[in-house]
Each structure stands twice: as C-alpha cells, then as structure tokens.
Design a protein around this nucleic acid. Structure first.
Lengths: 184, 184
DNA sequence: GGAGACATGTAAGTGGTTACATGATTCC
DNA sequence: GGAATCATGTAACCACTTACATGTCTCC
C-alpha cells in the first residue's frame, strides 16, 4: 500500500528511472523502507496506468534506453492526501525471524545462541558505521535535488536508525552478560 | 515462511486450537511476530495436509466444537531443522509507514509533525506499560505449559522490546526538542 | 438488547520474493 | 576473463490483509 506513496514522494522531488528509484530506496531510505527491483517496476506500471505518473524514453547510444518517470498533478494530489492521513496505529507489523529463533532458544545449545548474538552485534555495528557515514551535506548539495525531502526530517529518520542500532547492540551485550552469570 | 515455524514452535510446547494460537500470538509474542486469524487457519490446514501436525475434534455441548492440533514427530524434526538454521542476514525487512510520512514531513505544517510525535510517544508509552506488566512467573506457572519456551529466552525478547520502546520514546522527545530550537 | 468472548472458516485482492532473461560498458 | 554497473522487464509463487459468514454464551 505504501510503496506506491514512497515512489510518488521521491518523484515529487525529481524525475527518476526505475533503476534510480531502486538506488534511492537502497541508499537513502533503506533504514525505513525496503523494496525489491521487480516490485518497483511493477508499481511504476500500475501508477502509469492510473495516470499518477507518466514517462518519456531517453535514448542512449551506448547504454540501454532510459525510461524517465514524472509525477502528474493528479499524482501530487494523491500523494499529499496520503501524507496528511497518518495511520491510527503508528507501529508497523512485526516479523522478526531472528527473534523467533531466539524465543525457542532452549532447544539449542547455549553455544549457538552466544555465537548468533555475536554475529548480531557484528552486523548491527557494520550497519551503524554505514548510517554514521551518511553525508547529508553531500546529499543535499546534489544540484538536481529540489530539497522536498527536507534535510531536517531526513536527519530525524537517520537519528532514529542510529539510536535503535545502538540499543540493539546494548541489548545483545546484555544478553551475553546474562548468559555468563546465571550458570544453570 | 516463518509463520509456519512459529506455529510449530508453539505446538511443540503444547496442543492448541487455532483460536488459542491466535491468542498466543497476540498476547505472548506480538512484540516479535504478528499473525492474523485467517493466516493462522490457512497455515494450519497446510501443515495438516503435509502431516506436520494432526487434529482431533473435541465436542463441547454449549460452545462451538474445538479442533485441537498436535505436532507430529515429522513436524518436530522440521521445526528443529529450521531452528538450527539461523538466517544469514539477521535484520528483517523494514516497512514503516509512520517513518515514511516523517521523511516527507516538509510538505506538512510543523504543527502536524509535532502532534504526530506526541501521539507516537503516547502509543509507545502505552505499549511499554503493557510489556512491563507481563507476568512471566504466572505465564510459566501455567500447569499445561511444558516450558519448552524457556523463561530466559522469553525474558530476552521482552527485554529487547522494552529497551527498543524506551529508545523510541527518547528519539521522539529529541525530535520535539530539535523542532523547538532551530526556529527556521 | 447489545457487546464481547469463544470458535470456526472462506474469498478476493494486494503485496512481496525469487528466479529468469537480455545486453553493453568499464574496471581489475 | 570475470565482476560490477547501467538499464529494463516477466513469470510464478508465496504471504498477508480485509471483509464476509455463522452461531452460542455470558455479562452488563
């Protein structure tokens, strides 16, 4: 439901190809929304059918042709309407495979859990580095960007990702401590 | 993919009806996995067809008949195999509608964002109270429970939910502070 | 009389994943 | 020679949501 509006939101800042949209999703907003390439292309087709966006083909001599999408006035209105209507329930559905494994952890040797917690910490630390490395200045100095995605709100979303990651690392370290102490 | 194993995991502790499974999901593990009622009934049918579980009907004179599901040895093996195979990537796909709204916040009046952040804080605080109120002792004193869901690991998952909620509240308060200061 | 708990399910539609398919260029 | 980047898409399948449908009992 919301992928549609994620795409419209990005297109309301500037025109993009499907390929470039995928990159925006991966690089700029993967900490709050993920989308696969085939999902994006499928959604673009639907949006064009419904006249919320339109496309033009840009031929490139050496590379495959580009199909560049632009948002229509109708698209802008639809996006604005969605934007104003915040969901009642502000938390999203949870489906965490790692935590499901953890929950049933007693059917596994403690060693396995410890090992997985260490992996967890490593992965979160790597992701933390990535988020800390995001250069907002450079991102917003991109001349093509009309700054509809306000720097402040982008900063807010990054801050949340950062704080959450730090907490997750703390949590996993707390678990490891607990497993040391209560030798059962 | 994992709902299947969530159900098998719960059934490896004790026999349950579809209705009771839904309650377990909502009450005990909603902080790490959510599932709708229709999803559970559909999955139970599939699991029974594949002989990972079987059912017996218990007639009740005054209420609708119960269909009680039991895990088979094959089911136990399948569950154990899944349990041992942790996913490579330990973070789950992100799809956070609230954060998507936030990201495009500059197309909304600041008042709206402030209001939504306050709502966010309220909701998280309410959820926090709920998690803090979970009585593990009572849960594990339920005579029918075979304690396959080890108290320790349940405690770990609750701790994570708790820490994460506290961080989210802190984050939203930080955002509100930021919005006070840089009067632009 | 109405709401909510108990108990089961089906149907239709939307959303998402995985795998396949093509093809040039650039960099190592 | 091989991997990565640029660039597009299709097909099949699986997961999830929402709405519908039925019926009793208990408590207020």
């Amino acid at each position: 439901m919301s992928l549609k509006f994620g795409i419209l939101g990005l297109l309301s800042d500037k025109d993009l190809t499907g390929y470039a949209l995928k990159k925006e999703f991966d690089q700029s907003i993967s900490h709050l929304w993920t989308a696969s390439q085939s999902q994006i292309y499928r959604e673009l087709n639907t949006l064009e059918k419904n006249e919320l966006i339109f496309s033009r083909i840009e031929e490139q001599p050496d590379r495959p042709d580009k199909k560049i999408y632009t948002i229509t006035p109708v698209g802008r209105t639809a996006f604005q309407e969605w934007l104003e209507a915040f969901p009642e329930n502000l938390s999203s559905a949870k489906r965490d495979t790692f935590m499901l494994h953890m929950l049933f952890g007693s059917a596994l040797p403690e060693e396995t859990i410890r090992y997985q917690l260490h992996r967890f910490i490593e992965q979160k630390k790597a992701y933390l580095k990535l988020i800390e490395g995001v250069d907002l200045e450079a991102y917003y100095n991109d001349a093509s960007r009309k700054e509809l995605l306000d720097k402040r709100y982008m900063r807010f979303t990054l801050k949340r990702a950062l704080m959450s990651l730090e907490t997750l690392i703390e949590w996993a370290e707390w678990c490891l401590e607990e497993m040391k102490e209560d030798v059962k």
